[in-house]
Design a protein around this nucleic acid. Structure first.
Lengths: 337, 337
DNA sequence: CCCGCAGTCGGAAACGTTTTCATGCTTCTA
DNA sequence: TAGAAGCATGAAAACGTTTCCGACTGCGGG
């Protein structure tokens, strides 16, 4: 495998390296004739630029980076994909970086800043915990997507998300309207100030409004995966047979719960109703299709990009809420007699 | 956001840049005292190495790269994840590169070779079409995973896969054993010499052995996704109501088909049996659970890494077949009377 | 005829590392 | 005690780009 450098191309084309560079970067100040000559050699050599050298030399922060926490999360992945779609039109090039669940996104930011010259960021699925103080410190434009950063009061950070609390409340309303009075809630940590805590609050809002007292034992901390939902359901229903509905904070979890119920001889929705969150494609295709809270992927993506570009042009940080919607599903039914 | 270079660290620590470099790379020839001094400064600055400069300087091909075609493919993703798991123990560091469905993996190889100094590759989900001649040309060690490259007769390429033909035949046997005589097959292009063509042949083998004549109209070229399966099923069943089973080449497709059947008022498996391929987790959690051909993710991953390391140490290229297995599922039943 | 200017192009200095080579300082050996 | 040998360190040359600066044309205007 032959590796050619810009120098090889220059030699072969009989020009200087600077000229080759100009051609490769589409600079205007090069004659049509030389451009042609250089491009011919590039073609012939199958020359590919070395990005390391390029990025090393280019020190001005031109990129915007999308940092996605969790490679497996289909929902976040879809949002990221949409983002780069929308980003196409804009002047600043976008790049995507996936980090693991446990990784520190601020390390990632620093790294991207140092290496890729990324000077602004969209953070997808950030936890917004104590580490987020680093965002304040870095002082570069940041957009939190699917996270409400309003209360954190950064002056360099915007955010876009659905009103998680209202959304969860609406879904719970819908479940209760079917006559259910004992509803288990499966989800993330309800004690913090993140989206999971807010979703929990939303569920409580609805129960309170319906005059239903909630048994704290009926909240289950669960992993957001098929397996997580499955295991939680098995453990839970061993003790609580009288619950007639399970509300979850993710579609994957909801499908895991549904499978578990079926394995335990309970039918969904005839015996137990189940709801999800996110509005993923898989949930629509599941049997029974999972009733869910749809987060508008395209809108979140578009708004995020928009907010970031705004800030890049000197605009204020803003916090926007996009509209959720309830998606119908076969997984919710009238409570059994 | 402050960016520090190795030079800043050196100055602050009162040593030369070369010494800092030695510390960072864990070289032995540096006194414990200076090491400590340097690491302190690194800690204090929150210094991160610039990988561009590092890779630019390091010219010896030390990495092995895993190239995954298709970010959305859960099965390939799982395999890749397992691979880096297994690769941990080996001397050569592995890196993963995702490319899009349409991208050319040989461009990716060249790029990785030039930039990341990747001198050997594992190709996941490669098409093995005309472009694969490039593999012969590059002459570096390559392992095709989930692809049978035996017939292509590279001397620098190994491969690991299940016996797709036998696997598909086994699954078809199982369907036919339930009394079905009209089985539709949904899958990829059956005309080439890739895994899809072989799977098709496998299905035909079984039908032939059972003395069943296959109507070529009952083969459907379909995309390997939920939507693909859904659309194909809707189109197909408008014309062919007498088919009692659908065999597919992917779990996603099978779930799409199942959902479509249900929407058309047909029950799975009572009215129509459905089978998948890959043995993904989602298929197990689906309702009905999808009978599938399990490809052993861990084994494919382990073998691939092993074969690559073998070749790196001068070993011959080999082609290994790993064992598939049939996974039971609720989606297949006795043919209706 | 000289000057300025636009259009092209080449030379060379960076960018942040790694690594080779040289150097000084110990310590050991004969 | 001289020299070899080993350790710890510094200086400097790369790696493949981009970009600034300057040089060289040819041209039109004063």
């Amino acid at each position: 495998m032959e590796i050619y450098t810009i120098r090889d191309v220059a030699r072969k084309a009989g020009v200087a390296v600077s000229t080759v560079s100009r051609v490769l970067n589409g600079r205007p100040d090069v004659s049509e004739e030389t451009r042609k000559k250089v491009l011919d050699v590039v073609e012939q050599f199958g020359f590919v630029q070395n990005r390391n050298a390029r990025n090393l030399k280019n020190t001005k922060p031109g990129y915007a980076a999308i940092i996605v926490r969790g490679r497996r999360n289909a929902f976040l992945n879809d949002v990221a994909t949409q983002m780069i779609e929308f980003a196409q039109g804009h002047k600043t090039p976008f790049l995507v970086k996936y980090i693991d669940e446990e990784d520190d996104e601020f390390d990632a930011m620093r790294q991207l800043y140092a290496e890729k010259r990324a000077g602004s960021f969209i953070l997808l699925g950030s936890r917004l915990d104590e580490r987020c103080e680093a965002v304040r410190a870095v002082g570069v434009p940041v957009v939190f997507a699917t996270v409400d950063a309003e209360r954190a009061e950064f002056d360099n950070a915007s955010s876009v998300c659905v009103d998680d609390r209202a959304a969860m409340r609406a879904m719970m309303d819908r479940i209760l309207d079917q006559g259910h009075t004992r509803v288990a809630v499966f989800g993330g940590n309800r004690d913090g100030d993140d989206i999971f805590a807010r979703r929990y609050q939303g569920a409580m809002d609805s129960l309170r409004a319906h005059g239903i007292e909630y048994d704290p034992d009926e909240y289950v901390l669960s992993r957001f995966s098929l397996e997580g939902g499955y295991e939680s359901a098995v453990r839970f229903f061993e003790k609580h047979q009288d619950v007639t509905a399970v509300m979850t904070m993710s579609d994957m979890m909801a499908m895991g719960v549904t499978r578990a119920l079926r394995d335990m001889g309970l039918r969904v929705p005839e015996d137990v109703s189940v709801s999800g969150f996110d509005g993923t494609v898989m949930a629509r295709y599941y049997v029974p299709s999972i009733a869910s809270v749809r987060q508008p992927v395209e809108e979140i993506a578009r708004k995020s990009v928009e907010l970031l570009c705004d800030m890049l042009e000197g605009g204020e940080a803003r916090h926007v809420k996009v509209d959720y919607s309830l998606v119908e599903g076969e997984s919710i039914a009238q409570v059994r007699a």
